[in-house]
């Protein structure tokens, strides 16, 4: 059976979620759990790293939709990064690039958060 796991790294104001394995209807609750733990503890600036994710199904995509609204209401965001071509294609077909910021590298996504922060502080 294909396995799936997540791990979370704390990078200052931003949290990075690393996905690994197969994300489908059966493993989606694991990611859901990770998100709700972060959101419940007030972490709204999230970067998801897809480097080690081999597959994502529609139920896996649904997890991002479930949390994005609440996160954006709290001035946060989910930024996606480091997808392989296959995974990106799935996101792309559904039009996710219009709804989410997708970056080639994790750092770009983190920098984006800090830029916004600087802008806010500059005000």
């Amino acid at each position: 059976m294909a396995e799936f796991s997540t791990s979370v790294k704390d990078a200052g104001d931003v949290n990075i979620i690393y996905l690994k394995g197969y994300l489908d209807a059966h493993t989606a609750p694991i990611l859901e759990n990770t998100f709700s733990n972060l959101v419940d503890s007030g972490r709204y600036s999230l970067v998801v790293n897809f480097r080690d994710l081999s597959y994502i199904s529609s139920a896996g995509l649904g997890v991002f939709m479930a949390f994005i609204e609440k996160i954006r209401e709290n001035n946060g965001d989910i930024k996606l990064s480091a997808m392989n071509d296959k995974v990106f294609n799935i996101f792309d077909l559904l039009g996710f690039p219009l709804l989410y910021e997708i970056y080639k590298e994790e750092d770009e996504a983190i920098n984006k958060f800090s830029q916004i922060k600087k802008l806010e502080n500059g005000k």
Binding site: M65, L94, G95, F96, L98, L99
Partner: peptide, 13 residues
């Protein structure tokens, strides 16, 4: 042709 999936967004977007 471009287009977002149904149910992903309900705005002008």
């Amino acid at each position: 042709p471009s287009g977002i999936g149904l149910g992903l967004n309900f705005s002008e977007q």
